[in-house]
């Protein structure tokens, strides 16, 4: 596995207003794996995820040190084209955030801003994304309806489809099921299992059971530090660090 690392995080630290929220993170993310990141609130796991496709740039007070190598290049290098980086490393947020337009326009948004104009190509990508997100059968007849009309679970799968329509290489999921009921959660997890064959998936979750169910490796973050990273079955049955054990057995967080 070690020779096909998709992303190499090298001594990466992040700061908001000088306060260090991520401390010297080092890890690799491989293609075709599902990596779960768990940890209590304020452990820096979301910040880490958002660092991977430079969404933290939106905060004027954000700064960083260290490197994140993607495709043999530091993504924080000045010459990097950030929009196209974000197309290759897609993100699904905790709260479903449909744009105020139709289902079709939501899913076609990414391809459109990337410059694709051909109607048939867009149709194809929309269908591709929705199918991959296991939503196509439910919405294929109502693509022109406002996305706000969908249920919460459907909205979240649409957000997934929106990212998949860009055919990214890495998929970042930021607690994608936190607002969903168990059935919708199961549907998203099913979709994730299918996605694994083609993408690297990084899943941030508060739900340790979900991490145990739906990942190959798990990383435990605490107060901005990476405490432990190992195969999921190993981490959950035989954690090396006592803080990890305390967390997964529910003693804090």
């Amino acid at each position: 596995m070690s020779d096909n690392a998709k992303i190499i995080v090298d001594k990466f630290s992040a700061f908001y207003n000088q306060a260090e929220v991520l401390r010297q993170i080092e890890l690799s993310i491989y293609s075709k794996e599902r990596l779960a990141i768990i940890g209590p609130a304020n452990s820096g796991k979301s910040t880490f995820l958002r660092s991977l496709n430079r969404l933290n740039d939106l905060h004027f007070h954000f700064s960083h040190s260290g490197k994140i190598i993607f495709d043999e290049k530091d993504i924080y290098d000045n010459t990097v084209d950030v929009p196209s980086l974000r197309r290759r490393i897609g993100m699904v947020y905790a709260v479903p955030a449909p744009l105020p337009c139709s289902i079709y326009d939501n899913v076609a948004y990414g391809p459109k801003v990337s410059g694709i104009k051909s109607r048939s190509k867009l149709d194809e990508l929309v269908e591709f994304g929705l199918k991959k997100a296991v939503l196509w059968d439910e919405v294929k007849d109502r693509l022109k309806e406002p996305a706000m009309n969908l249920s919460g679970g459907q909205q979240q799968r649409m957000c997934l489809a929106r990212v998949l329509a860009l055919q990214p290489e890495v998929l970042l999921l930021d607690e994608p099921c936190s607002g969903l009921d168990p059935i919708s959660t199961a549907k998203i997890e099913d979709a994730m299992l299918e996605l694994k064959s083609s993408y690297a998936v990084v899943l941030v979750t508060n739900n340790t059971k979900q991490a145990a169910r739906a990942s190959d490796r798990t990383a435990f973050f605490l107060m901005g530090q990476l405490i432990e990273l190992s195969r999921t079955d190993e981490l959950f049955t035989n954690p090396a660090d006592e803080r990890t054990e305390a967390y997964i057995t529910g003693q804090f967080g």
């Binding site: 897609g90 947020y93 955030a97 744009l99």
Partner: peptide
């Protein structure tokens, strides 16, 4: 809403 901006950036728009 701020989320619109994040989503838009996240999907690779300038």
């Amino acid at each position: 809403p701020k989320s619109y901006r994040e989503v838009s950036y996240g999907l690779g728009s300038t």
